[in-house]
């Protein structure tokens, strides 16, 4: 994958990426702010429904400069969600959680696949 350019964003006369987003991505401070906001929103959305993981991943993807960075950001979101999942429970330790196989395979898998799947939207927008 190569980095997106303004020319690509307007291929065939259709603007896939809003101008403000293109600009935000190009400015490090704004991009980082957007990323942080996307990560926070992603954790909150994940608390509502598992589809929130995908939406969160998509937000992270949209705030990322490139698709590879979007995927890395999505993985960070997955880790954040998992961390919050364990920390938010006053009774569940990491070891106890991980021992609950095969249920935790689904939990861990979803924490990775959900945000990454959403982050693929970076290849679209």
């Amino acid at each position: 994958m190569s980095e997106a350019t303004p020319a690509e964003e307007t291929t065939a006369g259709f603007r896939w990426t809003p101008e403000w987003l293109t600009e935000a991505r190009s400015r490090p401070y704004r991009r980082r702010s957007l990323l942080v906001a996307a990560l926070v929103a992603g954790v909150l959305l994940a608390w509502l429904h598992w589809v929130g993981l995908v939406l969160g991943g998509a937000l992270v993807g949209l705030a990322s400069r490139t698709l590879p960075r979007a995927v890395v950001g999505a993985l960070v979101l997955g880790l954040l969600v998992l961390g919050t999942h364990v920390v938010a429970s006053p009774t569940m330790g990491v070891g106890e959680f991980l021992a609950l196989r095969p249920l935790t395979y689904v939990t861990l898998g979803l924490a990775v696949v959900g945000p990454v799947w959403g982050a693929l939207v970076r290849a679209v927008v």
């Binding site: 919050t84 938010a88 569940m92």
Partner: peptide, 16 residues
């Protein structure tokens, strides 16, 4: 997925 998802999964609600 509804049962096992991190944070929102039904299996974990009592743990919070």
């Amino acid at each position: 997925l509804d049962t096992a998802a991190p944070l929102s999964g039904g299996a974990w609600q009592g743990r919070y």
